[in-house]
């Protein structure tokens, strides 16, 4: 029972972080960059394992942020070449980094406590067993604290630079004209994406993070009327996905992270269906009133 609560709490925090950061990715039309970073972060994690000869949270974070920023920067640099378009350069970089990560895992299988399974699914079911022990007492799962720290970092960064991010998302040209350093805030956002991905890695693996980044934020994009409400909606969709997804996983005995991602998608499709129905209704109503 206690372990269920830890799993749910970790998943909720991870999903919330992803949703908040995802809102800005979706608004800035950089969902694919988010996809790319979440793949590249794997290489950062693997390298940090190899360099530190084992698991170290700080090294993982540093490695992940470096690889994430490197991905964003290389993608931008390559796409300046006249023969390469933006999605080509993104696609090339993240597949190469991810491939290198997977190959390193398979070559150094004995030395890295990671396998292809956890890259894909995450290991949220095992989260409760890896606990932090402080002063002789168990303080709860390590992944939970990591997710909590990253969530708090994300919330405070967004709160502090809210206006800058808003300007960058809605009026990038105006932002430049006003003297806002767009590259700097862009880098900050990419660092947030990398941090969020690495905190989510234990829980949901490298690939399903994309679902949590993009899907709740897109659902929120459909219903929200302002940036603030979009953030709130995204958080709401994320929490609902976690709760329903966990129920689905228990019911079908399927992977928890995958089920959460599936429920996020189901909620998005339900939102679209609902909106389409309302649209049809109002069209009918207006046709009827014209006929009278």
């Amino acid at each position: 029972m206690m372990s269920d609560i830890w799993i749910l709490a970790t998943a909720c925090l991870v999903a919330s972080s992803c949703a908040l950061v995802g809102v800005f990715l979706v608004l800035r039309r950089q969902s694919l960059l988010g996809d790319a970073i979440s793949h590249s972060v794997l290489l950062g994690i693997v390298l940090s394992y190899l360099m530190m000869d084992g698991r170290s949270e700080i090294a993982m974070m540093v490695g992940a942020v470096i690889m994430g920023l490197l991905t964003a920067w290389l993608a931008e640099w390559l796409q300046k070449h006249p023969l390469l378009k933006s999605d080509v350069s993104i696609g090339m970089i993240f597949t190469s980094f991810f491939a290198l990560g997977v190959v390193l895992i398979s070559v150094y299988a004995g030395q890295i406590d990671l396998d292809q399974e956890c890259v894909l699914y995450g290991e949220i079911a095992f989260v409760p067993f890896d606990t932090v022990i402080w002063g002789g007492e168990s303080m709860g799962p390590r992944a939970f604290w990591l997710a909590l720290v990253v969530f708090l970092v994300n919330v405070s960064v967004i709160a502090v630079v809210f206006e800058r991010y808003r300007l960058m998302a809605f009026h990038p040209v105006l932002a430049v004209a006003l003297g806002v350093s767009v590259p700097m805030w862009h880098t900050l956002l990419m660092a947030q994406v990398s941090l969020t991905t690495v905190a989510s890695f234990d829980a949901v693996g490298a690939i399903l993070v994309v679902a949590l980044l993009v899907i709740p934020a897109s659902s929120a994009y459909l219903v929200a009327t302002s940036l603030k409400t979009m953030l709130v909606w995204a958080l709401g969709y994320a929490q609902l996905s976690v709760l329903l997804g966990y129920g689905l996983a228990v019911w079908l005995d399927s992977a928890i992270a995958a089920s959460i991602a599936v429920m996020a998608g189901v909620l998005l499709l339900a939102t679209i269906l609902f909106q389409q129905l309302i649209q049809k209704q109002s069209q009918k109503a207006s046709l009827a009133s014209e006929a009278h």
């Binding site: 994309v210 993009v214 899907i215 992270a257 991602a261 599936v262 996020a264």
Partner: peptide, 9 residues
Amino acid sequence: SLFFALGLM
């Protein structure tokens, strides 16, 4: 991500 998650599930 949705289809991939469905597949993994």
